[in-house]
Simulated scan of single mutants.
Amino acid sequence: MKAVVLEEFGGPEVLRVAELDAPEPGPGQVRVRVRAIGVNPLDGKIRSGAMRDAFPVSLPAVLGAEVAGEVDAVGPDVSGVSVGDAVFGFSDGGAYAEQALTSSFAHKPAELSWERAVALPVAVETSDRVLRLLGVKSGETLLVHGAAGAVGALAVQIALASGVRVIGTAGAGNQERLAGLGAVPTTYGDGLVDRVRALAPDGVDAVFDVAGRGALADSVELRGGATDRIVTIADPGAAEHGVVFSGASERDPARLAEVAELVARESFTVDIGATFPLADAPEAHRTTESGHSQGKIVLLP
């Protein structure tokens, strides 16, 4: 099978197509013929070597945490799924390939495209985990930094569905998109504190930092100096501000299936920013790292 392999840390250009043996499913795993692969900012950080302490990688490696495809082999101790079923979920051992393994997956609704299905695993897991940590409830105001990305946009919609008021930060080109999701949009950067205070004179109850663009100091100020109820998934300087950095995954296939149905029924919106052939993984990484994509970046084998 063809796969994109990381043999050394560096820029996007270090990602190369290679021929590998197809993986064999072990206990609890299925193998899928890959139809779509999710590209995440973490992929680029692992590729660059910036995350080698937090996410040790043995080279050569295949990147990619999100996969969608048709089951073509079923391992021992697996029930409820058969060869030919359409599934999506978290990959075991990397997804940038024509075939991949997964042990944490859900069935894909027929109405849901491969691209939109593969945009869900990380966004659903991360949004649910952080919103649970923040304890936001109906009537409160949540500030989301980086609200136009794949994770941020879903977090906005989940919070709004719970009766939470959401203020979302994004670039100038994404303000209309955020308003369409139901958030109160504003731009990030200089003057953020004043802009948010104008939108929320009584303050914000919680902050979810998806972007990692150095907004933690402003977040603490907006919380009146309190560091509780601020969580980042992207800023390595969290400890310096006394803020929680959340990276531990809590995968729930049943929840994946639930949100997939909501997206299939168009109760939730999932936008695809761009798709690339598998061989163009370096360009997909460059697009992700530019921070200007309006939605999920997806590879298509």
Rank of each mutant, 00 (worst) to 15 (best):
M1Q: 08
A3R: 04
E7D: 01
E7G: 07
E8G: 11
G11V: 02
P12G: 10
V14T: 13
L15S: 05
D21H: 04
D21T: 00
E24Y: 12
V32M: 05
V34T: 11
A36D: 07
A36K: 06
A36F: 09
L42I: 15
G49A: 05
A54W: 12
F55V: 15
V57P: 10
L59M: 14
A61F: 04
G64D: 00
V67C: 01
V71C: 00
D72V: 10
G75V: 12
P76K: 06
D77V: 06
G84D: 11
A86W: 03
F88R: 02
F90A: 13
S91C: 00
S91R: 04
G93Q: 09
G94R: 00
A97Y: 07
L101S: 10
L101M: 09
T102N: 01
S103E: 14
S104H: 15
S104V: 15
F105A: 14
P109V: 02
P109T: 07
E111R: 11
E111P: 02
A119G: 11
A123Q: 08
T126N: 09
D128N: 13
D128K: 15
L134M: 03
L134I: 05
E140T: 12
L142P: 03
L142F: 01
L143V: 06
L143C: 00
A155H: 01
Q157C: 06
A159T: 09
A159D: 05
A161Y: 09
S162N: 15
V166H: 08
I167P: 09
A170T: 04
G171N: 10
N174S: 15
A179E: 04
A179L: 07
G180R: 08
G182Y: 00
G182S: 01
V184P: 02
G189P: 12
G191M: 06
G191L: 10
R195W: 01
R197F: 08
R197D: 07
A198C: 04
A200H: 00
A200D: 05
P201E: 04
D205I: 08
A211F: 15
A211I: 13
G212T: 14
R213C: 06
G214R: 07
G214M: 00
A215D: 08
A226E: 11
D228L: 08
D228N: 01
V231H: 07
I233P: 06
D235A: 15
D235T: 13
G237T: 02
H241M: 10
V243S: 09
F245W: 13
S246C: 10
G247L: 04
D252A: 00
D252M: 08
A254Y: 03
A254H: 13
R255W: 08
V259H: 05
V259A: 04
A260W: 13
L262D: 15
E266M: 09
E266G: 08
G273W: 10
G273E: 03
G273R: 02
T275W: 07
F276E: 10
F276A: 03
A281T: 09
H285W: 05
T287N: 12
E289D: 11
G291Y: 14
Q294M: 13
G295A: 05
